[in-house]
Design a protein around this nucleic acid. Structure first.
Lengths: 216, 216, 216, 216
DNA sequence: GTATAACCGAGACGGTACGTCTAGTCTTACC
DNA sequence: GGTAAGACTAGACGTACCGTCTCGGTTATAC
């Protein structure tokens, strides 16, 4: 994982972009072409339509170059996803719990159901069901971090005294985002603002005894 | 798909089971061998290790026989799953909402995380993320029916007057089972009785203003 | 080697040609297309230009079909060679040693230097220098038999009393054909009738004390 | 090919051997390492096992260094062969035709069948069947010169009056060495002293009317 | 004595072909 | 008509080398 893949791909922002096949660095041009080709193929032809051969052909890159830097097509998609979406789901900070959560859940629902990055993400979650090793990579590369981001509004509210201490943070987040993921991954029902706001209302009612959401 | 697959496979109980390569209908022996081989391969080698060729070889069946009755390996797995697990997740009826839900969610969590059928189901849910057509088949073949079963305790409670009329049943079920699916499909955190009971408590508190769950 | 390759390919003349991908026989159509494609490619592009992929593409055949029946491209070329040239080098029988040998050596020289089959043969002899296992196959599949054919005129002459008994047949054949192969494989000098007739004259002079060849 | 390869490689005896990565000459150390690596690989793994990458890795040399000085792996092998074997096959001069030829042919047979250099040579002859351009290089780089050396005993005998004037020298050499090459390249039969001495006896009998070889 | 430039090891690059695997189709003989 | 067997076309897999290239480092002259 030391060579630019997955997490490192995100962590190394000022990657050496001027080299071209020498001992001091990989070709950033090839890397970008691969990630974009993988993304494009997923959106156009679906997960099954993403093949290493197809990526190589579309990116104008040799297969060996792909195998040099990535192990599987899901590693490529994860890299592409991380690059596209790493910061897309950081909840805002209005200084108030309710609007923070409502905005965050709406954004999450939109991301999962409407964006290209969301399509990649759904494909990766799906593949993770077939490959425990990849599931672990996906969690350590993205999901754990996202879970941390998801909890920020609640933690800030605890610090403000808006919420009581000693919350089971993990369980609260499951109750907030679980129903959304369920609709996205299992039932394919629409996930609109009314639904996500309702989830926030439940939490506020349960933990603060009041503060109904205002209709918009 | 009209001949014995998916739903029909379950609907036709007194299938001709005594023939073997003759003019009088399909061989029930071959069908069972295929379904068992698919199941076994999934548990042993994972979803990727399930191939039509592998199933045929292990079942001692010709590939053509498989293609005659099923379109894809996921159709086979769905058939196998339906046969094993169709009735496994019908919630009990104690005449009381709280124990019904608690038992049902515990059973659901166990099914998803511990059983072989649950492993098959997770694989199918995963594949559904990659193939919208199969997602539709999976929903119409199982998920819709399961969703109906999930709602039975709530509906009975409404009839009993235990719950108010006019509930958004779909949203309530999402809040009950969504967090469970989330943990199973996304975070891989354990899903114990405390967690599922907590989900029931939330619902009771929200809809009936009281009735905390007793620790066991 | 039981499945139609090399020797068997020649031995089985009335091969079942009416089947098409079933348990009872391979596709004769595919087999012929492969052999012809290999031959054509060798003549057009040389030995290096003969690739399994290229043969498959030109023959309109799947690579797997090739690998099912042949191990290497040289096996294919040997099959093609045997089919083309098996009977091309049987010496004639005029009832007299001198004309038999003269005709045979002239024919051998023409075959080696002018024919397409000769080009294939030179390529196979060349490859045999790189692969002892293939060298053994080539010898047992063709060279041993050819050596037997080469000796026929001498054996007939011994039977007729034209030549003394107790000849070192192998050594005599080496002296007849060795210089021809040497020119073909090593020096690339032309091998005309004067040269081959001279070889016959040497033998006659050495073994029969007379009978100079008449110029033609 | 102008820089140090093939013929020049032999012609340039006082090659600058003391430099290592400067503007005034190639590294003799690298050159030797490459030639030895190629030789070793051929003996260990056969012609197919000799690759530029493999040579570079074993020699501890960069691929570019190889490509700077040689065009193909066969050029390297030819260089290695010339260095090892250039003077190995000069016939002796006893002042008498018969012993000169007998010693020379025995030595040739041993060289071709027993020595490492002979193995390289057979591989090169084999490859020459696949590549006419290389065949030309091989002939001009070695075979023509060797043919000249082969004829020395005969030429000396003509000068001495031991043999008549006006011999077809090329044809005589073919009759001497052709059977040997035939056994080595085609039939893989053993080439012992009895066989090579017999070839000499034939020539003496044919050209001098007598002078049987004495058994040794 | 320093600058220059030909050589060096290293290794990434775009390619081609390899030999394997599975998909999905087809044909046959048997029952 | 259904079945086991298995050959067929098609195409992706992951690997090995090819020949080209760019890089940073080394070193013997030429300035």
């Amino acid at each position: 994982m030391e060579r630019g893949s997955t997490v490192a791909a995100v962590a190394g922002p000022e990657r050496a972009a001027r080299h071209h096949g020498n001992r001091h660095g990989r070709s950033e041009q090839a890397r970008q072409a691969v990630l974009e080709a993988a993304d494009d193929l997923l959106v156009e032809k679906g997960f099954t339509g993403v093949t290493i051969e197809g990526i190589a052909a579309r990116a104008g890159v040799a297969k060996q170059t792909i195998y040099r830097w990535w192990k599987t097509k899901t590693d490529i998609l994860l890299d592409a996803f991380l690059q596209d979406a790493a910061e897309a789901l950081t909840p805002p900070d209005h200084g108030d719990l309710a609007p923070d959560l409502r905005a965050h859940l709406r954004q999450l629902a939109l991301f999962l159901t409407r964006s290209d990055a969301g399509a990649v993400f759904r494909a990766l979650i799906g593949y993770a069901q077939h490959d425990p090793a990849f599931a672990a990579v996906l969690r350590s590369g993205y999901l754990d971090e996202q879970r941390r981001r998801d909890s920020l509004p609640l933690e800030r509210a605890v610090q403000r005294g808006q919420l009581p201490d000693g919350l089971d943070m993990a369980a609260e987040i499951d109750r907030l985002v679980g129903p959304i993921y369920h609709r996205v991954l299992v039932t394919a029902e629409p996930v609109g603002p009314a639904f996500t706001d309702g989830l926030v209302d439940d939490l506020l009612h349960r933990l603060t005894d009041g503060a109904k959401s205002e209709p918009e």
